[in-house]
Design a protein around this nucleic acid. Structure first.
Lengths: 120, 120
DNA sequence: AACGTCCTTAACATTCTTTTCACCACTGCG
DNA sequence: CGCAGTGGTGAAAAGAATGTTAAGGACGTT
C-alpha cells in the first residue's frame, strides 16, 4: 500500500470556490450550494477552463485548446454543447443563479450572479 | 493459515462506521445493519480502500494501488469485478441502501445513501 | 485426488458520454 | 427590414466506460 498522504495531501482536496460554486479539482467534482452537480468529465473540464480567469471572458478557441488541445475546427460546436449542459445542470440546482455568461462573437465568462430578486 | 499475527490487542478491534455499514478492520469483517456481509479478503480490501476518503471520489488507479500495489495495468477490470460483488453482498442485506457510487470516467465513491424501492 | 473457495481474466451486455447534425432564435449591421 | 453570422437546443449517431457472467487456474482442505 502506498499511503500517498505524505506526498500530496492537499492536492487531492484542492478546491476552488466562486460564489455558490465549488470545484473539487482532485475529484473532478462540482458542487453548487453544496449539492453535487454530477458533471461529466468533459463538462467539468470545460467549466474548469472557464475558471482560469473567473469573471473574465474566455474565447471559445481558448476553451477548446485547454480541454481538447490543438486548434478548434471551423464551426465546431463542442464547447457550446457542453456549456449548454453545464448551465442545465448547475441551473437545476440553483435556478436563482447564473454562472456562465455568453459574450457574443467572443466566448464565455464565468461569474456567478444572482438573477432575479436575489433570494439570498 | 496466517502467521502469528494474532497479537496487538486493542488495535485489532478498531472499527469504522458509515451509516449502516461497519468495518471491523482488525477482523477484516464487514457488517451491514449488524449482519455479517461475508466479504472475501480482496473484497474487503477494496471496500477499505474506498473508505480512505468516505463520500469522496477515489480513482480506480488509487484503489488498485492501495490493494494490489503498483500501477494498474491497462484495461484491468479487477477493481470493477470486486466492486460488483461488494455491491451484491451489501445489497443483499440492505436493498434499500446504496453504498458504492460510480463516477464515470474516474472511479468510485463510498457513501451510504438510502434509496427507495427496496423490493422488486 | 477430489472438492470448494477465491481471484483473475476474457467476452459480451448495458449504460453513459461525447460528438455531430439539423433547425431555430438571436445579434448586429447595411 | 432582411441578410449573414453566431449561439441555443434537442436528438441521433458514434464512441467509451462500466456492469455482468462465466470459465479457468491457484490454493488450501478434506
Amino acid at each position: 500500500m502506498n499511503h500517498a498522504a505524505a506526498t500530496t495531501p492537499t492536492l487531492q482536496d484542492e478546491t476552488l470556490s466562486l460564489g455558490p460554486l465549488e470545484l473539487r479539482l482532485g475529484d473532478r467534482e462540482a458542487l453548487v450550494s453544496g449539492v453535487r452537480a454530477s458533471l461529466t468529465v468533459r463538462e467539468f473540464e470545460v467549466l474548469e477552463a472557464l475558471t482560469e480567469r473567473p469573471d473574465r471572458v474566455i474565447t471559445r478557441e481558448d476553451v477548446y485548446g485547454r480541454v481538447w488541445g490543438g486548434r478548434m475546427p471551423y464551426r465546431d460546436r463542442a464547447v457550446d454543447v457542453h456549456v449548454k449542459r453545464i448551465r442545465q445542470k448547475l441551473g437545476a440546482i440553483a435556478p436563482e443563479w447564473t454562472f456562465v455568461h455568453t459574450h457574443f462573437g467572443i466566448g464565455y465568462r464565468l461569474s456567478p450572479e444572482a438573477t432575479d430578486g436575489g433570494q439570498q
